[in-house]
Design a protein around this nucleic acid. Sequence first.
DNA 1: TGCACAATCACGCAGCGTGATGGTTT
DNA 2: AAAACCATCACGCTGCGTGATTGTGC
Lengths: 101, 101
Amino acid sequence: MTIADPEHPLYGISVAAQLTGMHPQSIRAYEDRGLLSPARTDGGTRRYSNGDIGRLHRIGGLLGDGLNLAGIEVVLALEAENQRLRAEIDALRGAPEDPAG
Amino acid sequence: MTIADPEHPLYGISVAAQLTGMHPQSIRAYEDRGLLSPARTDGGTRRYSNGDIGRLHRIGGLLGDGLNLAGIEVVLALEAENQRLRAEIDALRGAPEDPAG
DNA sequence: TGCACAATCACGCAGCGTGATGGTTT
DNA sequence: AAAACCATCACGCTGCGTGATTGTGC
């Protein structure tokens, strides 16, 4: 069931805009800054996955906190690394490998 | 030798400005934003430690990368947490508890 | 065929740097 | 008494949101 994959391309940009409360132009600007990389159709139209929507929500939260795009880029990278470090700690402690089972 | 303590208050704001290449007004603005908390004399004059200077250098680096103050606040917190997580991993791996011995 | 999309330009608002001012600490 | 400090105001520059435009994909 690849359709349930969080990275499966599902939405056009206007739907992504509705789901996130963002302006389509803003979403394109975030992509220009490298904050996300949605899939594209053969013709070049963007297709957003649920993972992309989640990432846009995180971006919107950080924007609401007053961060600019340069800061959001660094923060997202640090948060990803942080998550990886926490997983490593769990593994070293012998915790269950995957809480989602 | 408390004088060697990296948190020992040493410099006035103009010296801190020289050491970091920053404008004194900017340094005060960073403090207003909660990015650092230098010591104060009884009269209220700021005194910067070497730790404060290092933090200002890090702030300057992030500013050079285009981050705004809101982003720098989040990044510094994430970097501190990141460092703590790495130390925890080292400890779990049986590395020496304190490299400074 | 029509509607949504792509890419680009223009304008307005807010954050930040920095100079100026007047009073206080060292 | 002088020099450095404090806090605050004012102005200019830049990043970002967003509307308008013209052409293309679905």
